[in-house]
Amino acid sequence: MQGDWPHDDAPAGVAGGEDRDGSGEASGPARRRGRPQQTPLQRALGLLARREHSRKELSRKLTARGLDAADVEKAVGRLAGEGWQDDKRFAESLVRSRAGSGYGPVRIRAELATHGLDREAIARAMETYEGDWAENARDLAQRRFGSTLAEELNLQRKAADLLLRRGFDGASIRAAIRFDPDD
């Protein structure tokens, strides 16, 4: 409640009080709340606690927040060495997540490449997926366009376009739009 603190006695971080350095000016959001600046290691660990990140993505996010590139590389290297950050685990997680969201292998490979993974790492991650891409494409097409898909050419074209945008290959698309559940 405003007014409970006399202006001169307000603790750091409370409206009207001075910052810890006594200047009366805030020097950033962490300072206003009375928390010390986080190290690059702490910030990286905070990001990893929310979700998996590739090494490249983690470095990019930290340097975009104004941290020194050398300190960021050191922190990310340490976290990778201790098992907190793992590109293999990140890639496998991304494959499962995107496949479950209705995306195909072409799109997923391209996304993994943008995260700085090489061809071998991408191939290994794609091999860990235990689903059937053609079945995923068929399920997506059936959900979006219904059971009349096999009979209507217009819907088949729309379904093919959708599946192509989602990153499915030609064989999966053909199997999905020509699928007849009664066969």
Rank of each mutant, 00 (worst) to 15 (best):
R98E: 15
A10R: 09
D86M: 12
D8I: 06
L112I: 06
R51M: 05
G104H: 08
G131L: 05
F90K: 01
A134G: 06
G22V: 02
T63S: 10
I122N: 00
A110S: 15
D19F: 05
R109I: 02
E130A: 14
D71V: 04
G66S: 09
R78K: 10
S101P: 03
R78Q: 10
G24W: 06
G77W: 10
W84R: 13
T39G: 10
R109H: 10
V72S: 07
E92V: 07
D8A: 09
A15W: 08
V95I: 06
K61V: 12
D68F: 10
A75F: 05
A70R: 11
E18T: 04
V76Y: 03
R32W: 14
R124L: 05
A49D: 08
P29N: 12
S59W: 03
L47S: 03
D118T: 09
P11W: 03
V95N: 01
P11N: 06
A134D: 05
E73M: 09
F90E: 02
A121Y: 04
L112C: 06
Y103M: 08
T63L: 04
D8R: 03
H53L: 10
R96F: 11
I122V: 06
D9G: 02
F90N: 00
P105S: 12
S27Y: 07
A70E: 14
Y129E: 07
G131W: 05
A26M: 03
A26S: 08
R43G: 02
R50S: 07
R20M: 09
G102V: 15
G100T: 10
D68W: 06
R50Y: 09
A80G: 02
R43L: 11
Q37P: 04
P29D: 13
K74I: 09
S93N: 10
T39I: 15
A125S: 01
A26P: 00
G77S: 12
L45M: 13
D19L: 03
G17C: 00
G22N: 01
K56C: 06
K74T: 15
G131D: 06
A99C: 13
W84Q: 11
Q37C: 07
G66C: 07
S23M: 13
G28E: 02
G66P: 04
E18Y: 05
P29W: 15
S97Q: 11
A26L: 02
D86I: 11
G17W: 00
D9H: 06
R65G: 14
D86L: 11
Q37Y: 08
L94I: 04
R32V: 08
S59V: 02
V14Q: 02
Q85G: 02
L79Q: 00
E57A: 12
A49Q: 11
D9R: 09
A26R: 01
R20W: 08
G46H: 14
